[in-house]
Nucleic acid binder design. Structure first.
Lengths: 337, 337
DNA sequence: ACTGATATGGATACCGGTACCGATACCAGT
DNA sequence: ACTGGTATCGGTACCGGTATCCATATCAGT
């Protein structure tokens, strides 16, 4: 095999025209069974693979949808992607992923790059986009679904939940369980806008009840178990009498839990821990961490669904799907203050 | 903005020919500063984005590299991807990811699909490919780097480590620490070929020492903490006097550790746990789980490096880079049987 | 002023497919 | 035999860029 076989080669080998070969391989319109077989065989024989570039340049459509997420080491986004895969199953479109590492310039570049592939639609994480990025999306003339958040104004459509409200709600639940002395431990809040929103919501609920965080600590690295351990240690050193720590997410909270277990601190009796996301890591010690369970797969699935229905011509601009995450107090459940 | 601007529009707006506009935007050859400025401005004005499909169809190259991994919910692969990103930094190539979910048919489809984008290179997880998939890669005429394994025969090049040997080595280390009654707990071994290889290596070392697994349990779901918990419970019920459990990886092992902590079983004194990968989840309880630390980012980085040097014309076919993972006994360190 | 080198711009021919429309063959009906 | 319909194919013109080669302009040196 010296040179990659093209459709013309296949057609020649099958003794038909390029057009007939093209139709035969795509299974479209009327081609005689005999020719379909001949073309298939020739393609097989030559190891013909097809050229997506030429095909979609010519047909002016592409079956590609771009998916932009900030991070993959946080399983949350891996689950969103898997939801997307589920949502597009059978629709013939194919997702292409891009990871921004929470870097806004990189995000702009990635989106621009994706647009240059002429995708049929785009799924982008977050609502808070820089002006320039937003313009890019507005001018793209393809359906754009923003995910994971609804606290803001989408370019086109969005699927997610309110982080502010979810912070408020778990705060209220914890207050309802009688907790009063709250600490906060978070990672990378300047980058993770949504974690910051949750903190705001949580704090707002505290203030409404005449309280506030007694102490706060922050790490600038990305969230991790290790960061959770050390933040918890810091926090409990500064303020040993806390009765609850709110973390920016479950990874950090799990680190806190592990620290407490080793330090012999009873969770949740001596100090309660609350995180966010309902991650499986927290299920290592069922119920010990209060959390907010978020419908990640569902978000991916619905986002994909919106893109698909947009491709079928439905108008999706303006749709905003708010899913409701669920507060899970774990072992604190049923406790009364 | 009614219609997407093309290069011709930009050229017209800038008062130059398509070619000059093309050259100006790519910064190639000599274009007068004045025209570069004019074209840039026109492009900006029109929100021109460029068309990757047309560009690479025309130039017959694509600076795309396809990356195929089995799974994203296992952080290992996310880290490999991040290593790849690092490895290609500055080289101008762009990675595109595909996830197979350990499904061989899906793998074939994804690879085929990627090839249809005319990528400049491919990075594929694993050496054990079905015949058909292998042929596809062999005929592709682009550099193919297979990662995560070296126990086998690569299509082109590979970067990884020996799973068989890594199983043997940790077994020997555990034997050296005086452990004798081994159990095995694994997830999805038929799908995860490499986990199966580690088990083989481990068992081989046991047999060489006149031992074998006392008891084995397997779950058919993908590895998870929850699976680790329940497998461990099963295993210790069947064989309460085990002094060491070897798990298919650290996720499962972490589940085991959590189970033991809650059940009041001292780790590693009463029963030692050994996993694979050196995942951060195991760092929640430092040293409690023996593991084999694998250079995941490094694998990604080197794989990307190989692709890049192939693109510069170097012959890479036949290169096989074996990295050496590191046995970490954790708290068992220094113990003597 | 003429020559050659250097810098810069454009015309043309593709890249590998597909849309669109017209051509051909074959057959039933009258 | 002729007409019209159906089924099946092929020719041509693109899609939006880039490679290649040629044309022109400019300028220093003699």
């Amino acid at each position: 095999m010296k040179k990659k076989a093209t459709l013309a080669d296949v057609a020649a080998a099958a003794g038909v025209s390029k057009m007939t070969a093209s139709r035969a391989l795509r299974g479209v319109r009327d081609v005689s069974k005999i020719n379909i077989a001949r073309v298939r065989e020739a393609a097989q024989e030559l190891g013909y693979v097809g050229n997506f570039l030429a095909a979609s340049l010519s047909s002016q459509r592409s079956d590609l949808i771009g998916v932009v997420v900030p991070n993959l080491t946080n399983i949350v986004f891996a689950q969103v992607l898997s939801g997307i895969s589920e949502g597009i199953a059978g629709s013939g479109v194919q997702p292409v992923f891009g990871v921004t590492d929470y870097d806004l310039d990189k995000e702009y570049d990635i989106i621009r790059n994706m647009l240059s592939w002429q995708p049929a639609g785009l799924i982008v994480t977050g609502l808070d986009l820089p002006e320039q990025t937003r313009r890019l999306l507005e001018n793209a003339e393809i359906p754009v679904v923003q995910i994971m958040d609804v606290d803001g104004d989408p370019v086109d459509a969005c699927v997610g939940f309110s982080h502010i409200r979810s912070g408020e709600e778990i705060a209220q639940a914890l207050l309802g369980a009688g907790l009063r002395k709250f600490g906060y431990a978070g990672c990378a809040l300047t980058m993770d806008v949504r974690a910051a929103k949750r903190r705001i919501g949580f704090q707002r609920a505290l203030i409404q009840n005449g309280l506030d965080f007694v102490e706060e600590v922050e790490a600038f690295e990305l969230s991790s178990i290790a960061a959770g351990r050390s933040l918890t240690e810091q926090l409990l050193t500064k303020a040993p009498d806390l009765d609850c720590i709110y973390y920016s997410n479950d990874d950090v909270a799990a680190g806190g839990l592990f620290y407490c277990i080793e330090a012999g601190i009873a969770v949740p009796d001596q100090v309660a821990l609350a995180g966010f996301n309902g991650l499986s890591i927290a299920s290592g010690f069922p119920g010990r961490i209060a959390t907010v369970r978020t419908p990640r797969r569902e978000i991916g699935k619905q986002a994909a669904g919106i893109i698909c229905s947009a491709l079928e011509g439905k108008v999706v601009s303006g749709t905003s799907v708010e899913l409701v995450p669920q507060v899970d107090l774990g072992l604190l459940e049923g406790r009364r203050g």
